[in-house]
């Protein structure tokens, strides 16, 4: 029994350590990429080409004092960062990195992902309320309403994936997309793919849907009262969530661990030596880059426009496409049945 326990813990660390490194260097990539998009250099002083910058940042935040406002609700104020990061790490348990490379390959994987992403809002809610600050509360209300609204569109997009794959297990969903790039679900489920991606950006409260932080209006939103490592944990949770959404999008719509030429006559065997996890990371990197690209490109949406987009545009699109999918499934038409 202790041997299996040891291996489980070892597997969890084998996911978490690369994840934390990826999060650290994702923040670095963000500053460099946006820097170049805005014709600046970005951080390039600490270490070779600024590569040690994230470590310097982490050390700085680690040694800063954590202040707790006198009127704050202490217990909830301290527990909120943990509540924010817990679901964004727990969701990684069911991600299949390669054939059979998942910590827990459960039947209800898709539902589990939905459950974990919907829990992330508690960290925000608690942080905003426990800080006893009007800016924090405003940010909390905005982001909670936004996350609840976009969860519906996201859930419907996942239902489409479920209908096309016929299973809720993430491994099963990837196996249903076996083959080259035109076999993947992004093509038959194109509207749902776009809806999922937009909803994913909104769920993580990132630009152009970042009214929850809105530096120019409410300073920094829900985490305005947090400092030092408590702030860093919120920061980590946000970036871990972005990477999670990217990896889920790559798994559900871009064929997970399959290479874009899998099963083709000459190219398929020629690239068969590349491990599947490399393809998954490359596909997820496309989405992660888009996150940064959006931030450098789009101005912030107005709050009522965000709500309109979620309820009046994305949800009808998904419902219509679900009806179309039902028609495909019933008549046996469509490229993937």
């Amino acid at each position: 029994m202790f041997e299996t326990l040891f291996w489980q813990v070892a597997k969890i660390w084998a996911v978490l350590i690369p994840l934390f490194l990826a999060v650290a260097y994702f923040t670095y990539a963000e500053r460099r990429v946006i820097g170049h998009m805005q014709d600046r250099r970005g951080p390039n002083r600490v270490g070779y080409r600024g590569l040690l910058q994230p470590i310097a940042d982490a050390l700085k935040l680690l040694f800063k004092e954590i202040t707790i406002p006198t009127q704050a609700n202490r217990a909830l104020f301290v527990i909120a960062p943990t509540m924010a990061i817990m679901p964004s790490l727990a969701a990684w348990a069911v991600i299949p990195f390669d054939q059979g490379w998942a910590i827990a390959d459960i039947n209800a994987g898709l539902l589990y992902i939905l459950a974990m992403t919907s829990l992330g809002v508690y960290g925000l809610l608690l942080a905003g309320w426990a800080s006893n600050s009007k800016y924090a509360l405003l940010g909390t209300l905005r982001s909670a309403a936004q996350i609840i609204s976009y969860e519906i569109a996201m859930g419907f997009a996942l239902v489409g994936v479920l209908m096309a794959a016929g299973t809720m297990s993430l491994t099963g969903i990837v196996e249903a997309q076996a083959g080259p790039v035109w076999n993947w679900f992004w093509l038959p489920l194109l509207p749902l793919f776009l809806v999922y991606w937009i909803a994913g950006v909104a769920e993580t409260n990132r630009a152009p849907f970042d009214v929850a932080e809105g530096e120019s209006e409410i300073v920094a939103g829900f985490h305005v009262e947090y400092s030092g490592m408590a702030f860093a944990v919120f920061f980590l949770a946000e970036y871990a969530n972005m990477l999670l959404i990217s990896v889920i999008a790559a798994t559900l719509f871009l064929g997970g661990w399959y290479s874009p030429v899998a099963g083709l006559p000459v190219l398929g065997p020629a690239l068969a030596w590349v491990p599947g996890v490399v393809w998954l990371v490359l596909k997820a990197a496309i989405f992660a880059f888009c996150y940064l690209w959006f931030r450098a490109t789009f101005p912030r949406y107005r709050y009522d426009q965000i709500m309109r987009l979620g309820w009046k545009v994305l949800i009808p699109v998904t419902v219509v496409w679900l009806v179309v999918l039902t028609g495909f499934a019933y008549t046996g038409l469509g490229p993937w049945f």
Binding site: S118, L119, L125, W129, T140, E151
Partner: peptide
């Protein structure tokens, strides 16, 4: 978890706050 924890209780807390 999805329905009660993820949606209903969030709205509850929302109102309570």
């Amino acid at each position: 978890v999805v329905i009660y924890v993820g949606a209903v209780m969030v709205l509850f807390l929302f109102v309570l706050m």
